[in-house]
Design a protein around this nucleic acid. Structure first.
Lengths: 196, 196
DNA sequence: CCAAAAACATACTGATTAGTATGTTTTAAA
DNA sequence: TTTAAAACATACTAATCAGTATGTTTTTGG
C-alpha cells in the first residue's frame, strides 16, 4: 500500500474508533487530525469534506467489519437456523469486536445520521440490506430443505432477527453487565427453535 | 398554570420536537430560543444549563408520553399477551404519535447521550425500566393464570419485546414505507403465540 | 400601593466548528 | 536529473456554540 493510501486508511480507521464512541457530529475534524497526527491539509486532500470521509469510512471500515463478524460466519457448517443463532451468539458473547457501552457502530450511524443526511441514509441502507440478504439466503436454504416452518416468510424472520439484534445493542448501552445480552440470546433461541 | 411554568413547559415541549428530529447535541440553545421565541435570559433562568433542560424534558415530556402511548394501554381488557401485542401494534400502526423516519425519542436519546453523559444514562435507564416493569407485571399476571408457558421467564420476554420494538423503531429510520413495521408485527405475533 | 423577588431581556465572550487559501515537500515518470 | 503532479503543512476565516454579565419588567405578598 502506498504511503498516501496508508494515510487515508489511517484517517478512516481512527475516525471509526472516535465516531464509535462519541458519535459522528461530536467528532470534530480537528479531533481526528489531532488523534491521527495528520494535518488538515492532508485530511482535505483525501476527502472533499467531513461527510465524504464518513461515507468512505462506511465503505472501507464498517462494511468489511460487518462481513467479518456477522456475515462470514453464516457460511459455517450445520443447520441453517443454528448457523444464524451461532453467528449472533458468538458475536455477542465473544465481545472482542466491540464495547457494549458504545452500541453497534452501524446502528449508531443510522440513528444519528439517517434523519439528517440522505447520503448516509442511502449508504447505510445498503449496508443493512447486505446483512438482511445474507440472512434471507440462509433462511431460503433452510426452507428449501424443509428445515423451516413453511408458513413463515424468510424475509420476516430476517427482519425480526435484525431488529432484535440492533435493539439489543441499542438498549444494551444502558447496562453494566451481560445479563440483557444473555436474556436476549435465550429468547432468540426460543424464537428460532419454534421456526423449525 | 402560572405564566412562568407555561414558559418552562413551552421550552420543554418545543425542545422535545427539535431534539426528536435533529438530536440533542445538534439542537442548539440558540435554535431552541429562536423556535420558542423565549429569550436566552428566560431559558437560563429556568434551567441551569442545557443538560438540566434535557433531563427535565425526559421527566416532563418523554415519560408522560411513554405512559400514554405504551404503558396505559397495557391495562385494557383481554388475554395478557394480547394486551401486550395490541399495545405495540396500535402504537406502531396508528402512527399519530411519531414519524417513523425519526425513530423512537427514548431510544434516540439512549443512543446519543448514554455513552457520553451519566446524567442522561441514569435517567433513561429509569425510563426504560419503567416500561420493562410494566411488561413484566402483565407477564407475571399471565404466568399466574397459567396463560404463559411455565418454562419462560417474564423478564426474558419483556427484554425480548423491548429490544425488538426499539430495534424496529431504530432500523425503521431507513425505510420509506410501513413494510418493515408490518413484517415485525407478524413475527411478534408468532413469537407471542408460541409463549402461550 | 410598595418593595422585593421572580421572571425575563439584551449584548456580549471565549471556545470550537468545518472549511479554505496558500504555501512546501515528496513522489514518480520521462 | 528534471519537472509536474501528488501529497502534505500552516495559518487563517466566518459561523456557531454554551454560557454569562448586566440589565429591565412583571409578579406577588404585606
Amino acid at each position: 500500500m502506498s504511503k498516501a493510501q496508508n494515510t487515508r486508511l489511517h484517517i478512516l480507521n481512527k475516525s471509526f474508533d472516535l465516531i464509535y464512541v462519541n458519535g459522528y457530529q461530536a467528532t470534530s475534524v480537528d479531533k481526528i487530525i489531532e488523534t491521527t497526527q495528520v494535518t488538515k491539509g492532508a485530511f482535505y486532500y483525501h476527502f472533499k469534506d467531513k461527510e465524504d470521509m464518513g461515507l468512505a469510512m462506511i465503505d472501507d471500515v464498517l462494511l468489511p467489519r460487518l462481513n467479518r463478524i456477522l456475515i462470514n460466519p453464516l457460511s459455517d457448517e450445520g443447520h441453517p437456523l443454528d448457523r444464524i443463532y451461532n453467528s449472533i451468539k458468538t458475536n455477542l458473547l465473544t465481545g472482542k469486536d466491540f464495547d457494549p457501552r458504545y452500541g453497534c457502530p452501524m446502528n449508531n450511524l443510522i440513528q444519528e445520521m439517517s434523519p439528517i443526511s440522505s447520503g448516509f441514509k442511502t449508504k447505510l441502507k445498503k449496508v443493512i440490506n447486505h446483512w438482511r440478504e445474507a440472512l434471507i439466503s440462509v433462511l431460503d436454504e433452510a426452507k428449501n430443505a424443509g428445515q423451516l416452518n413453511s408458513n413463515i416468510e424468510p424475509n420476516d424472520v430476517a427482519n425480526f432477527i435484525i431488529v432484535g439484534y440492533e435493539g439489543l445493542r441499542a438498549t444494551g448501552k444502558l447496562e453494566t453487565n451481560m445479563n440483557l445480552y444473555k436474556s436476549y440470546i435465550r429468547q432468540l433461541k426460543f424464537y428460532l427453535d419454534n421456526l423449525k
